[in-house]
Design a protein around this nucleic acid. Sequence first.
RNA 1: GGGCCUCUAGCUCAAUUGGCAGAGCACCGGGCUUUUAACCCGUUGGUUGUGGGUUCGAGUCCCACGGGGCCCA
Length: 482
Amino acid sequence: MTANRLEKVEHLRAGGREPYPVGFQRADLAADVRSRHADLEPGAATGEQVTVAGRIMLHRSFGKLVFATIQDPTGRIQLMATRDELGDGVAEFEDLDVGDTIGAAGEVVTTRKGELSVKVSEFTLLAKGLRPLPEKWHGLTDIETRSRRRYLDLIVNEDSMRVARARARILSALRHEFEARGYVEVETPVLATQAGGALAKPFETHHNALGVDMYMRIATELPLKMLIVGGMDKVFELGRIFRNEGIDATHNPEFTMLESYEAFADYHSIAELTEEVIAAVAMAVLGETTVTYGGRDLDLAPPYRRARMVDLLAERIGIEVWPPPDGLASIAAEHGVEVNSAWSDGKIIEAMFEELVEPTIWDPVFVLDHPVDVSPLARRHRDDDGLTERFELFIAGSEYANAYSELNDPIDQRARFTSQAAARAAGDEEAHMVDEAFLRALEYGMPPTGGLGIGVDRLVMLLTDQHHIRDVILFPTMRPED
RNA sequence: GGGCCUCUAGCUCAAUUGGCAGAGCACCGGGCUUUUAACCCGUUGGUUGUGGGUUCGAGUCCCACGGGGCCCA
């Protein structure tokens, strides 16, 4: 089939016609033509000349009369090529294939059946397609091909285009919300000699000229806090994060996170910021705060419920878990939660929460006050030394945001790092490394600060009703094809 | 990492108990001046993911490997 199309290209060139010309000017978009001529009678002639361009999606020939439906970024419109108008040119129009990109000029008319059309007086082949498009009835459904050849998916699956465009609007709305609140967007290193700010395995690489091993960032937290030390009191970064972990419905090795830090804020004010931003983004993208996710309604309008992690867990299992009772590990085991004997009480509580409470959450909840040993960068709770001033926002069983009153006590931070380093030495590959550069910055004094991270891909999934992260990432990470 | 499922024409899918690899769309040729997934007639198109094995005979059964999916860790 490609051979046939190549012959056509050769034939065009032999006849002095360029199959990939430059310089064509599109003057009109399908949707604009449609909106200008919404309710024409069948057989109408408007006298309006338009110049449209797009990819041929459907092609129907009657020999001396040819219809082609082209698609541009705004939609589809039918072209009608007639012998009356084009003479022998109609044969050339008939020879076009589905998948070709063409430009055409002509009068806006309706056909006898009432279909709005451009009656072609001139047309130009702009890009000959050598490969056939997926089938016009069933389109492209194979998940692997849709992900690997996203361009095809975008051409034939309207929903994929909808999601891609919604994602762009979400990114734009997020920026708008933070900028409107006086936050400054910054860029921090993707490549660093230490990976910190989160508990995760990094990608490792090497800088040849410097002769040092480097890591792709697993968070933007530490450099952003250094900017708070530097006096940039409200900063945010919207960027790609890399974690060397498995791929599943909610994890891609590279993903997009928004992190923000605000001096003189705490996790209570950041919770208010978070619910306002999420509601505003939903409004910007959907025009309402009610979303349907997997067929079930969800309201993103503030305020969201606030509840302590330990209280939600106690409510679920009917036993108080804070302060940790004796035999917490056996209580976990009784509820089918597997725990490691090396785990701290805090880690056990977190694991029980993840397994027993998270899946039951539907409406937005700020889960507050995580145990200190699972939160090495968060400030200790002002009323309880064993907890932190932290929240995670859960919606529909998944985590969407993570925030702290930031730990700005350099002595405590060093102690936390040291304890993480011990866990690392004991084999926990995700434990945090001691970051001396960050500690030095804290030692100069960081004001009390509220910080926030929002998982952007998951937010896109929520607002576009997608249930796999690969469907909101244009080019998800995949194994090589061969 | 483990379990289960899956891979057939460019796309979407068939193929009985192990018995001639097929259809629709696309492509090519022919017909048609009002179609809407146009229609009608006739062609073309295959290393059945890859490599082995069993068998008179393998898309089908077995083994290994590769891609993908779902679930679990």
